[in-house]
Amino acid sequence: MLILGIETSCDETSVAVVEDGLSVRSNLVSTQERLHLKYGGVVPEIACRAHLESLLPILDEAMKTAGITLNDLDAVAVTTTPGLIGALLIGVTAAKALAWTLKIPLIAVHHLHAHIFAAKLEHGKAMEFPCLSLVVSGGHTSLFLSSKETRHELLGATLDDAAGEAFDKVAKLLGLGYPGGPAIDSIAREGDPARVPFPRSYLEPGSLDFSFSGLKTAVLYHYQGLVGARCNVPLPRKELADLAASFQEAVVDVLVEKTLLALRKYPVKGVALGGGVASNSRLRKRLSLALEGRHIRPYFPPPALCTDNAAIVAGLAYYKYLEGELASLEVEAAA
């Protein structure tokens, strides 16, 4: 069964063809990162226009790469929520038009559930449920208890900033550029993660929610203190690296600790990771070490599947299709 996936929830336009849920025939991503670079973030107007411009050429390319035509498709799947509303609308409208003209079923996919599916796409049948799923990205930091591919119970989420947002804001503050995640990951390798003891916010005991706003502010104070002491002379690279490494360590500590706390409450056998921040090398290393000691399986997707892409949408859609969870043509995008 061939399912076409469309993903336009944020700044990536992506179209994929996945066969029977797990075999990726094509997965094309047109990133707008270059467009957004100078803004230090996603600009909605740019995002929408770029989706509109790239969607059809990418669709053609996805068909060619998969070696099929539109008439070979059995269903079309699209991310309907959450995301930038204008950006989502473009994908949803295209998917409806395709489903209507090709007379094939339409499947609506939740963006965060698709991110969790990235682990399944990588590990296939070896991935066992139930498991815990940690989705960490620019817009989200959420912990789920996943009973199967299509069912995820939210256990906790950020109360203020998402982890990826903290990475972006801190990178901008330190002058490291956009996107902030890879920039900090890279320079942090040269730094000492224990150099600055930034605060770790765990909220009330037992809470599975997250908070990264205070950490962001603590980095700001520390940075301003250092720059002020140097009479506004830019910091040397080593100092920036120490700051980046210390900040990153604080984020990773909280993500790992909360995951372990959730494992004590819900003793499952595996942990899936998803979202853009899931490609952070320090998080992968620390979390896999922590899980290894407890004989819990890590289900980590490769970096290419961590960022927004349509293969995870089309893959998850297959399981929704098997359960008869189809969308009507009236389905709407929701921020």
């Binding site: 996603v42 909605p44 947002e165």
Partner: peptide
């Protein structure tokens, strides 16, 4: 207040 989060990413929340 728990449902109120940073809107930097989505630009608008209701």
């Amino acid at each position: 207040p728990k449902v109120v989060r940073s809107a930097s990413f989505l630009l608008m929340q209701e």
